[in-house]
Design a protein around this nucleic acid. Structure first.
Lengths: 248, 248
DNA sequence: GATCAACTTTGATACAGATCAAGACCGGAA
DNA sequence: TTCCGGTCTTGATCTGTATCAAAGTTGATC
């Protein structure tokens, strides 16, 4: 089974993205077996906390379905989301005993977990796992840096447009591709969560979403269901370069 | 030579941090030799551009001395610094042909470079290099996420204090330790570069630096030489948790 | 020692987004 | 059906930072 170094998320084996992301055909079959042996699933409900910052964390894993957020909070309560975990994203850090961020499920979610110690052992003996994780981590780093530009230099309207673009893009590539025609998706975040991701207040988020709607850049059905008639218009609002350079 | 898996930067072999960072005693000696063979040095003057975003990049490397910045620029000129490269920091991305950011030397700088293709070959055959790079990249990712909190949720004054803390800390650990007594260092950045890092204007940076000086949190000698009489006061201004959790 | 360019500081004013406040909407429970 | 809590929208006002403008400082060069 699994004889290609595939980057895609759900082909063949629908249950466990990490197998596609972290291992490849060059790994020995019995290493795959071992990975299989230390794997287990955890199920979370919307709103449930996966782990608190500072807590002991004895597993790593990846999101199978649903969405989680990575957030940091200051003593006075100011909150910044530092990552949005969509299906296939990796969670946890080999070589560190405690969690650095709060991880919260924002929708019902399933994670595929590996006990950390055996996973680290395995990583030690299976070079391509570390190489695969390195690529994934570099991608996350690029995404984080992309987000630094959003947080530091973009206006509220541009921030909203950037966030919607990212969600639309991820949604489109995970499900039925095509960013050419109209794109439709459900917002997996509350206005407050969007605000925490964008470094804004929830009122500002609400106002800017309304403004984008009024200007015809997006269509709203209810509060969460969004249609983007023309993605290029949205990307223009986001202030991005016209190429498809955006990550996440 | 080099018989420990050392994380420190300049012991034993003063000329090339990457040897300490990316390799370790478990690697074969002849792999070390090969690493040695594909290595070369490049020297940059203050203000010189190492590479432009989008350009072909056929090397990876690390900073030996001096400081460089990683920046992103929007079409209209808005600029966000997404990384500060201090001695021992790694530059470049194995597995990607072009640079994703502008890299500019802000002081005279020396880099130790490796041609990318041979380096990737070597990485393929020497597992601990990928493992080492993974750890370094995870550290960078944490630093980027820490910075997202700064950009998204901190006030101008807190931003300045955060930046000064990071520079003071890096300076202290690279040179003569001790964050207990007063800490003295030279700012390696112009007010404009600080602004680009913090998502502010240079005028605001100037005002807030003056304010911190007036309040006795820092002392200024000339425009660039800074003394922090009491680091705990500065960290308080930065709004950080009291523990030493800050990264970079 | 004078000149010049780059960098920095300081002041006056404008504005984007925060804050405070009030309702509107919507789904679930009784 | 009504109530209720959570979520979202909208309005009025305030404020931190940007913007525009001018002058001060420093160090290099002639």
């Amino acid at each position: 089974m699994l004889k290609e170094d595939s980057l895609s998320v759900t082909q063949d084996c629908g249950d466990c993205p990490i197998r596609h992301r972290a291992v490849c055909a060059r790994c020995e079959t019995d290493e795959l077996e071992r990975l299989e042996n230390i794997k287990y699933y955890r199920r979370f409900e919307a709103g449930q906390t996966v782990i608190w910052s500072g807590d002991r964390m004895d597993f790593v894993g990846s999101v199978v379905s649903g969405i989680a957020t990575l957030t940091q909070t200051m003593e006075d309560g100011r909150t910044q989301m530092v990552g949005l975990l969509l299906p296939s994203d990796f969670v946890g850090r080999p070589g560190r005993p405690t969690a650095a961020y709060d991880v919260v499920a924002t929708t019902d979610m399933v994670m595929c977990c590996f006990r950390k110690a055996p996973f680290e052992d395995l990583m030690e003996r299976t070079p391509h796992i570390a190489q695969r994780l390195l690529q994934m981590t570099l991608d996350e780093l690029d995404a984080a840096r992309e987000w630094m530009l959003v947080l530091g230099r973009k206006t509220a309207r541009e921030k909203i447009a950037s966030l919607l673009s990212i969600i639309a893009r991820r949604d489109a590539t995970l499900n039925l591709g095509g960013l050419d025609g109209p794109v439709t998706f459900d917002l997996p975040l509350t206005r407050e969560a969007m605000a925490d991701y964008l470094g804004l207040t929830l009122e500002t988020v609400s106002r800017q979403v309304s403004a984008l709607k009024k200007d015809g850049i997006i269509q709203l059905e209810g509060k969460r269901h969004i249609t983007v008639p023309d993605m290029t218009l949205l990307l223009e609002e986001a202030g991005d370069d016209t190429d498809g350079g955006m990550l996440v």
